[in-house]
Design a binder for these strands. Structure first.
Lengths: 88, 88
DNA sequence: ATCGTTTATCGTCTATAAACGATAATATAT
DNA sequence: ATATATTATCGTTTATAGACGATAAACGAT
């Protein structure tokens, strides 16, 4: 796993809200943006921005499904990330 | 482990240079600032600042030793951090 | 065709990060 | 006492993050 992507994943997780979003995604397996907006005390645009960062890091993927986007954790990337952390 | 500290550790590792510094500290077990400055293409003040962030997150600790500071990874914190990541 | 719902993006503002050089602080050695 | 080496901090500059509201885009339902 490249240092650059590693750093991006760490950075993506470097915010309490994004940690919680990822935990939530792992728990529910999948999720649309609206559900997350309803849970957190932030605006839709803010949550969307957090999801964008998570997606850009590669740890989360989102597929468009009609008018909404279904987000989920990319298990392959998460596995590689966990393997790296374990190696520390 | 509290979300706030978790996020701080993730954030601290969210920079390629700081990842490398931590890897280096783990490898050598301990290190003074000057050695790191010699390795990386950044100024002493920049490296010192990176070390400060790492220290503030708790993942690294530094004890003053005469005119220099000896840095090392806090194994207890690293362990807890690794345990959290494993739980994802 | 229009409306409502959902999501992404734009523009803005404020705060923090990242880098540097310069300087202060500390301790060792001369 | 003075010089040297090491580290931390200050001040500055530029870039990025984090939040918001407003708006655009996409689709489903009416």
């Amino acid at each position: 796993m490249e240092k650059e992507q590693l750093a991006n994943i760490f950075k993506a997780l470097g915010h309490p809200t994004r940690i919680r979003i990822v935990e939530h995604l792992i728990e529910l397996n999948t999720c649309v943006c609206r559900e997350i907006v309803d849970i957190f005390p932030y605006s839709q645009s803010t949550i969307s921005q957090h999801l964008k960062l998570l997606k850009e890091s590669g740890i989360v993927c989102g597929e468009v499904e009609g008018p909404r986007t279904r987000f989920c954790v990319d298990q392959a990337v998460l596995s590689r990330f966990k393997a790296y952390v374990k190696s520390l």
